[in-house]
Amino acid sequence: MKSLYKHILIIGLVVIIAAGNVFAQKNKKKTTRISVEYVKDHNKTETLVAKLRVKEKRYISLNDAIVKFYSVSDTSVLLDKIRTNKDGEAIFVIGDNPKIFKDSLGFMAFEVEYDGSTSLKGSNKKIAVKQSNLEVSFFQKDTIKFIEVEANEIGGNNQTSPVKGLKVLFYVKGTFSLFNFAKEKTDNKGKIKIEFPVTMPGDTNGELTIVAKVEEDDIYGTVESMGEINWGIPVPLVKEKQRGLGDTDAPLWMVYTLITLLSAVWFHYLYVIFMIIKIKLAKRSF
């Protein structure tokens, strides 16, 4: 009896919770979250990457939604409306857009906004960045090889000045990801000099790509620069094995053995067939 009550209670609870869920889903809009990042890649292309996500059990990307990009000063100017891709990202290319406002210090302020829909809440985010340049170069002193990085910021009237104390990360570019080998801050001249990692393998010519990166800096955002140099340890192309057990062509001894054996047997078969023909031809001779 007692257990029956318990069961009824549990079933009742489940029904209530389920019903509650149904109503909740009808009435309550889902929360969205938008984030934005300024990225300057190694081609010096500046973009704003807005990422839109929806709260389900956890945050998941929302694709095919319209994100508005504004340039913000005293008033907001709409720059563009861009749809998010399958990763939930809307990418706005800054370029030389005259609508973008730059203040006397060189700061640009942006706002991204998602309006929401019948089932989703809207969200927005602001960001301010200062443009900068990062240059990678290589030089050799005696036998030691160096990588040098120079960081400059662009002021309000487009004049450049070195950035000091900027954190720069150094990577070697791999097939799938970047391998971090150093982290350094710029000196008073906006420069960093580090030793080249001589044990790093390159491609067949020893060529490898060094990436210097400022990552999500409060002022400069993400700035990336690349340089190629043939200082890596060359990885020789392994000659494909020929005529092995695992290859298309068989080892020669195997081919010869097989041909010898088969031809020996089949030769005798042919000889015997020839004899049968001779039997047929020899019918009259006594």
Binding site: I276, I279, K280, A282, K283, S285, F286
Partner: peptide, 9 residues
């Protein structure tokens, strides 16, 4: 095959 039991055959 025309076998007749001749010596040759």
């Amino acid at each position: 095959v025309d076998f007749n039991g001749t010596p040759k055959q």
